[in-house]
């Protein structure tokens, strides 16, 4: 049976490379045939904002969107999202504005491994 990995990331989109580490792990896992779930928590939710246009820096929003297209389930904490002034519809294609109770719980329950990317 295909093994499943869930990645929780909690660092914002630009202040550190953490979200990029999360997407690189996810992408390597997809290439190796694993099922991957990702959950954005705390400041991590900033990485799912639609329309990021970093000049010369990696575009983590675009990377997440590409992962979603490859079947990676991406959800984030709505409380963290609205606390930072984001509204539903501002997220990238394929990301679900959800909750710890429904989405992260489901992810963890079906996972063989949980990886936390934060500092």
């Amino acid at each position: 049976m295909t093994k499943t990995m869930t990645i929780i990331w909690r660092t914002g989109s630009m202040m550190a490379m953490d979200p990029n580490v999360a997407t690189k792990l996810a992408s390597a896992a997809v290439r190796k045939g694993y099922k991957v779930n990702m959950f954005g928590y705390g400041e991590g939710i900033t990485a799912v904002k639609k329309g990021q246009t970093p000049k010369r820096f990696p575009n983590v929003g675009a990377d997440l969107e590409a992962l979603a297209k490859q079947g990676v389930a991406i959800a984030l904490c709505e409380t963290c999202y609205t606390a930072r002034g984001f509204q539903r519809g501002e997220e990238i294609e394929g990301a679900k504005v959800g909750s710890l109770t429904n989405d992260l719980f489901g992810f963890v329950a079906e996972s063989d491994r949980l990886i936390t990317v934060a500092r």
Partner: peptide, 19 residues
């Protein structure tokens, strides 16, 4: 830092579901 509070809330969310 937000971390400790966020960790305690995450623990609660999992426990509420019976984990």
């Amino acid at each position: 830092l937000e971390d400790a509070f966020a960790g305690l809330r995450l623990a609660l969310a999992m426990a509420v579901n019976g984990m």
